[in-house]
């Protein structure tokens, strides 16, 4: 019985709730999803503080490049990053969709595609950072660059973590199939992925677009 793996329960004989998605079918699954929403709330606040710091410091460019100079020279990088991440959010959504509608091979395919898109996003970001650094625009050049690298880098670290995490879930789904536990895990990692997309939307708005304006 799959419920045996689902963590702390009040009643062992609690039936799986029917008529709801699998990941919500146990009390435990629903509680963990709520717990993850609460975690995302703290992460929202974390990014809010980083954004606040960025906004306060972004004109403090010292001897380094200004935002306009840094991002305005080549907008293709962050434009590509933006569309890649938007698309990966969509493919990740499709994975959840397939999980709920029963095609597990397509579910795995969409996860793999999402991970690949994530990897290419990270690749572009690493390329972007290394270009800046090679031009002498490092974290210790100015307060603006400190704030920029930290804000965008924190997001990038989140995305990297998300890719590894997704890999772990993919491995578990391959081994154990889709059950209330793996369904819940996939649902949570997809929440995380969409959330990172939201954060990126604000990064490209507040950092990049505002920078080149």
């Amino acid at each position: 019985m799959s419920i045996a793996h689902s963590g702390l329960q009040h009643h062992v004989d609690e039936p799986l709730q029917t008529g709801v998605p699998l990941e919500f079918s146990t009390e435990d699954g629903a509680t963990k999803i709520l717990g993850f929403w609460l975690f995302m709330v703290t992460d929202v606040l974390l990014f809010a503080c980083l954004f606040a710091t960025y906004v306060v410091l972004y004109k403090h460019i010292g001897a380094g490049a200004s935002a306009a100079k840094l991002f305005g020279d080549d907008v293709s990088g962050f434009t590509a990053e933006t569309f890649i991440l938007l698309t990966s959010s969509f493919t990740c959504g499709l994975a959840t969709y397939e999980m709920r509608h029963g095609s597990h091979s397509r579910l795995k395919l969409w996860i793999v595609i999402t991970m690949l898109l994530g990897l290419s996003f990270i690749g572009l970001e690493v390329y972007e950072f290394s270009t800046f650094v090679s031009h002498g625009d490092t974290m210790s050049t100015s307060a603006f660059l400190s704030a920029f690298f930290t804000l965008v880098g924190t997001h990038g670290a989140h995305v990297s973590l998300g890719i590894i995490w997704m890999g772990l879930i993919l491995y578990q789904i391959s081994r154990r199939g889709v059950n209330p536990v793996t369904a819940r895990k996939l649902f949570i990692v997809s929440l995380y992925w969409h959330f990172l997309d939201v954060v990126w939307v604000f990064i490209f708005t507040v950092v990049y677009l505002t920078g080149v304006m």
Binding site: Q17, G19, V20, P21, A30, G93, Y97, H101, G102, S103
Partner: peptide, 19 residues
Amino acid sequence: PAKAPAPETHQGGFPWSHV
């Protein structure tokens, strides 16, 4: 009970809302 946005048993279909 959770509001079920999609019937659990429904196979295939097209993910209109995602698109």
